[in-house]
Amino acid sequence: MDPADASSSSQKQEQLENNVEASKLDRALDELALKQANVQALETKMREMEKQHVEDLEKNEREHALKAEETVLAERAKRVKQLDEERVRFGALKTVLSSRRKALEEAKIAHEIVAGVSKLSEKIEKGESFAREMRVLKKVAENDDVLRALLSVTEKTLDRLASKDVPTVAQLRDALEKQVKRDARRVYLIPKEGGGMLAHAVASLASLIKVEEVVGKDNNTSLEAAISKVEMLLRDDRDSVGDAARILLKASEYSKAKDVVQSWATSAMEREEIDFILRSLIAHANAKSSGV
């Protein structure tokens, strides 16, 4: 073979081999590029999956947080409702207890009023002084407006009579029978301005034989008629004791008998005053007692 041909053939062979190698290299590069593209695609997909996973986690977290918040809100609403119910029950219980406490206080005050008036009545009915009972009743009245008003209106009369033994109607009737009418008759014919020994003697004699005389032109009521009427009033109607006193005072107005009658009449009118006040106090005590 010609050396030139051999050289040319060798070059062709070498070029062919180079082409094969280049082709292999190209294929390898293509495969590498494909693999790189696949890796990039995989990485992209992984990033997308990771992003989706993060989003899913965040979504789940939000959903769980929302559910937890809803649960808390529902529990809170339930607790609030329970608290409201408890508050209503507590308010009702407080109202009941307050009403019971007020009722007990009212009952206590009513009992104190009834007891105080009862002790006062006992003393007055016996004609005994009642200063101590009045002090107790005034203390009780600090908790009762009506009783305080009653005592305030009658305070002067009560203070004036509290330390006195105001005679009862029976005692007044007894005093009238045993002393007052006898002494009044004895001096009835003696003028109010007085008289000498003879006038006293005549008056005493007249009282023994029940001689009646009108003394003073304005006096149209005889002592005997007045005494009879007073005795009837004291026997039939104890509430007329004041009227009895005024009748006897009127009948003896122009004679010395008025001096005899005056003390008895004053006691009788004091009995009228204290009985009227006592009736008012008893009425209030009864009303207070029946109201609890």
Rank of each mutant, 00 (worst) to 15 (best):
N220A: 10
V180K: 02
A162E: 14
Y188Q: 12
A170D: 13
A184W: 03
E177D: 15
H200Q: 14
E253W: 09
Y254K: 14
K181R: 14
G196W: 05
D183W: 09
S255W: 00
A203N: 05
G196E: 08
G216I: 03
S163E: 13
S240F: 07
L249H: 01
V166S: 05
G242E: 05
D218Y: 00
D183F: 12
G216F: 01
A225N: 11
Q171M: 13
P167L: 07
Y188H: 12
V214Y: 10
L198P: 03
S204Q: 08
I227Y: 02
V241S: 05
S222I: 00
A175Q: 13
S240W: 04
P167G: 07
R238H: 11
S252E: 03
D218A: 02
A201N: 02
M197S: 12
P167R: 06
L234M: 14
V169R: 06
P167S: 08
H200D: 09
R160I: 04
L208M: 12
K164V: 01
S255K: 00
A199M: 08
V180D: 01
R160D: 14
R160S: 15
R235W: 04
A203V: 06
S240I: 03
K181G: 02
V169P: 06
V202L: 13
K164H: 10
D243H: 08
E224T: 14
L208K: 10
D174T: 13
S240D: 14
G242P: 05
V211L: 15
L205C: 05
N219C: 06
A184I: 09
E177C: 11
R186C: 10
R186L: 12
S163D: 12
L249D: 07
S228E: 15
K178T: 14
S252C: 15
R238Q: 13
D237P: 04
Y188I: 04
L208R: 10
S222G: 10
V230M: 04
N220Y: 06
G216S: 03
V202Q: 05
L205Y: 07
E213G: 09
L233I: 08
L205E: 05
D236L: 11
L234G: 05
V166M: 09
L198S: 13
A244E: 06
L176E: 06
I190Y: 01
S222T: 14
E213N: 07
V214N: 09
L233V: 04
H200P: 00
S222N: 01
V166N: 02
E212S: 14
A199R: 07
L205G: 06
A162D: 11
I190S: 01
R173T: 15
R246K: 12
D218I: 00
G242Q: 06
E213H: 10
Q179N: 12
A162K: 15
A244C: 09
L223E: 02
I209G: 01
Y188L: 07
V230N: 03
A245N: 04
